[in-house]
């Protein structure tokens, strides 16, 4: 791997000038509808540019892990993270802080959905899931993986691999719905907003798949900014940024996330997420 030590050296020499021009870069993956990312979020970039007075750039990424990496490598200074990825990112970049969350993210929840062929019915009691096949969303998702797994293991008193006959990771909430509807998996866990959108749009046949349980509320998506933002973009930058986010009122911009508005948040809000992730072994 010695080339890995030499190459960056060469490339740093070559490309440092490009990074010297201070551009504030952010990334965001919405929890539903990832099409036209650049078109949609460039509008957000333009809004921030006007509010902050620095050049703002949007970088599209494919996964939470990629967003965390970009954040850690300082390729982005601000990111719209899920609950878990935010915790991961803030652990990797000490001093970085959660500054705002979506209004809905104060009390986010997941739905457990089941194929109509199963005898499972909607209930406020945790269903007996022993012996079913089950699919999560993507591996790093808070609403599709972390919280569902936590509630399953807490309520059933054993590890998921001892409960289900087959466990899948569909990779996406709309995939989870499609696979449970098709019967590929009997039960699945899904972000409640994605489910509600799918029902509203008629892209899910509710005679074939139904909600059987919903998790208690937990905090989810949030804006996290790097610790060195003030140092790079001037004193009070983080404050100015927080204000700009909280004051984002244009429904067109908010629809990209999609959230009705942003409210204040701080790192302490996400302590429950961190302890849950540690409890199920996703964090050390």
């Amino acid at each position: 791997m010695s080339f890995a030590k030499i190459l960056p050296l060469i490339f740093t020499c070559l490309f440092v000038p490009a990074t010297l021009a201070e551009t504030f870069t952010f990334t965001a993956i919405p929890d539903e509808n990832e099409s036209q990312l650049k078109t949609r979020f460039n509008k957000v970039a333009k809004y921030l540019e006007a509010e902050l007075g620095v050049e703002v750039n949007y970088v599209p990424v494919k996964s939470y892990a990629a967003a965390v990496t970009a954040f850690r490598n300082n390729q982005v200074q601000l990111a719209w993270f899920g609950g878990l990825s935010g915790v991961q990112a803030r652990r990797l970049v000490p001093g970085s802080q959660a500054i705002a969350q979506g209004y809905e993210d104060q009390y986010f929840k997941s739905f457990f959905i089941a194929n109509a062929s199963t005898p499972l019915e909607q209930s406020s009691n945790f269903p007996n899931l022993n012996g079913y096949t089950f699919t999560f969303g993507s591996k790093g998702s808070t609403s599709g993986r972390l919280m569902p797994q936590f509630y399953i293991e807490r309520n059933m008193g054993k590890q998921v691999k001892d409960i289900f006959t087959r466990i899948g990771f569909s990779g996406d909430h709309s995939r989870t719905i499609a696979q449970v509807e098709a019967g590929a998996y009997q039960v699945g866990a899904v972000n409640y907003k994605v489910w509600e959108t799918a029902v509203a749009n008629g892209t899910v046949d509710t005679s074939k798949v139904k909600v059987i349980w919903e998790t208690p509320a937990y905090p989810d998506y949030q804006w996290t900014v790097r610790a060195d933002a003030d140092q790079r973009f001037g004193d009070g930058f983080t404050e100015k940024l927080t204000k700009a986010l909280l004051e984002m009122k244009d429904p067109d911009l908010l629809a990209s996330f999609p959230r009705q508005s942003f409210v204040e948040a701080d790192n302490a809000d996400y302590e429950p997420i961190e302890s849950v992730a540690t409890a199920i072994g996703l964090l050390d």
């Binding site: 791997m1 890995a4 030590k5 960056p8 050296l9 490339f11 740093t12 070559l14 490309f15 440092v16 490009a18 990074t19 850690r72 490598n73 300082n74 390729q75 050390d284």
Partner: peptide, 22 residues
Amino acid sequence: PKMTGVDLQLVWQFLTFDILPP
């Protein structure tokens, strides 16, 4: 597409810490 700078400290950390077993 535009190349971005490489943070040598991170590379070093990746090689000497991140990928090493606990």
